[in-house]
C-alpha cells in the first residue's frame, strides 16, 4: 500500500481506540477527517447538516444508497462534510447533476442541499424544471437571504429593504417566495422551517426523503457574518429568538401567502403534501410500457452492464 493510501485511511485509524462515550453521535454521518469545518460561529448551515443527519438516522436509511449533491456557496459546502457519496458541483447546477445521477442509478436516493442563490438564482431554471418533471429528488434550500460565500450580496430571496453589499441603500427588488415557486412548479412536498425548529425540521426532512417525487424544504438560517449583523438583527442567539417570536406555524397555508418581508412574520410549516402524482421515472416507465410493451428495456438486467457495473439494477428496489 502506498503512503498516500495509508494516509487516506485518515487519522482515525492512527489514533488509539476512541472510547465510545467521546464519539459524537453524528460521527457515522460526517467526514470527521474534514473537521473543523469552514462555517462561521453562529452560522445556521451546521444546524441543517445536523437535522439532515438526524433524519437519515431516524429513517434508518441504507447510507450506501443515499447521495448528496451541492452547488457552490457556503451552503454548497455541505456535500463536503457528509459521509455519503457526495458531489460538490458547479454554481447553480446541483439539480441537473442530481437528475442525471438519479436517472442513471434508480437505487440511489439523491438529495440536493444548497443555498438560495445557487438553487433559485443561477439554478432557478433547473429548480422549476425538476419540480415540473417531478424528478424523485429531495431539495433542501438553506436560505440565508444573501450570497454569503461571495461576501454578502443581494440574492433572489433577499427581502425588500435589507442591506447587502450590492444593495447598500436597501434592496428594492421583489424577492421570490420559495414555497410558492416550488408549489406552482409542481413539487409534491413543500415545507419551510427555520434553523431554530430543529425537531420539526428533522421530521420534515425525513418526510421529504421518504416521499417519492420532487420534495422541497426551505430552511431559513442566519448568516451572522454577512447578513444579520449588517442588517442589525442582533447576535445569532437574538436572531434565533426572533425566529421563535416572529414565526408562525401554519400547516397547509396557501404557499402564495407566505412571502417574507424584512422584519416581518415568517410563516413556517408544511404547505404542500400531494399524494399519487407519478414521478418522472414512473411516468417514463408507464409511457414506455404503454408504447412498447415487453420491448421496453429498462427492466432488463443489462441496463447497467454497459459501464462494467457490478450490481444490476432491480426495478423493484427503486425506493429501498
Amino acid at each position: 500500500m502506498s503512503d498516500a493510501r495509508k494516509n487516506a485511511q485518515g487519522p482515525a485509524t492512527a489514533e488509539p481506540e476512541a472510547t465510545p462515550d467521546v464519539r459524537h453521535p453524528m460521527e457515522p454521518f460526517l467526514r470527521m477527517d474534514r473537521f473543523p469545518h469552514i462555517w462561521c460561529p453562529g452560522c445556521g448551515i451546521g444546524t441543517v447538516v445536523t437535522c439532515f443527519a438526524d433524519a437519515l438516522k431516524k429513517g434508518a436509511f441504507d447510507l450506501d444508497r443515499v447521495a448528496v449533491v451541492s452547488g457552490i456557496g457556503c451552503s454548497g459546502r455541505v456535500a463536503g462534510y457528509i459521509k455519503l457519496d457526495s458531489f460538490h458541483t458547479t454554481h447553480g447546477r446541483p439539480i441537473p447533476f442530481a437528475t442525471g445521477l438519479h436517472l442513471s442509478n434508480r437505487r440511489l436516493k439523491v438529495v440536493v442541499i444548497s443555498g438560495d442563490g445557487d438553487l433559485i438564482a443561477i439554478g432557478g431554471n433547473h429548480f422549476i424544471h425538476a419540480a415540473r418533471r417531478n424528478v424523485d429528488l429531495t431539495v433542501i434550500c438553506i436560505n440565508n437571504f444573501n450570497y454569503a460565500m461571495t461576501g454578502g450580496q443581494v440574492g433572489p430571496g433577499t427581502p425588500v429593504l435589507a442591506i447587502s453589499t450590492t444593495t447598500p441603500f436597501g434592496n428594492f427588488e421583489h424577492p421570490f417566495n420559495l414555497p410558492a415557486l416550488a408549489a406552482s412548479s409542481g413539487a409534491v412536498y413543500v415545507a419551510r422551517w427555520t434553523s431554530l425548529h430543529v425537531r420539526r425540521l428533522t421530521n420534515s426532512i425525513l418526510e421529504a426523503l421518504t416521499k417519492p417525487g420532487f420534495t422541497f424544504v426551505e430552511v431559513i438560517a442566519p448568516c451572522p457574518t454577512l447578513y444579520t449583523r449588517r442588517n442589525k438583527l442582533g447576535t445569532s442567539l437574538e436572531v434565533l429568538e426572533s425566529y421563535r417570536d416572529n414565526s408562525e406555524i401554519r400547516h397547509g397555508a396557501d404557499p402564495s401567502t407566505v412571502d417574507i418581508s424584512f422584519g416581518g412574520k415568517i410563516v413556517i410549516g408544511k404547505f404542500v403534501d400531494i399524494e399519487g402524482k407519478p414521478t418522472f421515472l414512473e411516468s417514463l416507465d408507464a409511457a414506455m410500457h404503454r408504447a412498447l410493451g415487453k420491448d421496453y428495456g429498462l427492466g432488463k438486467d443489462y441496463y447497467m452492464r454497459s459501464a462494467g457495473q457490478r450490481a444490476l439494477v432491480d426495478r423493484e428496489a427503486r425506493h429501498d
Binding site: 441537473p96 442525471g100 445521477l101 438519479h102 431554471n125
Partner: peptide
C-alpha cells in the same frame, strides 16, 4: 448547462 451537468451525474451513477 443542465444537459452537461446531467451527463456528469449519470456517469457517476455508473452508466
Amino acid at each position: 448547462m443542465a444537459s452537461m451537468a446531467a451527463i456528469l451525474g449519470a456517469a457517476w451513477g455508473g452508466v
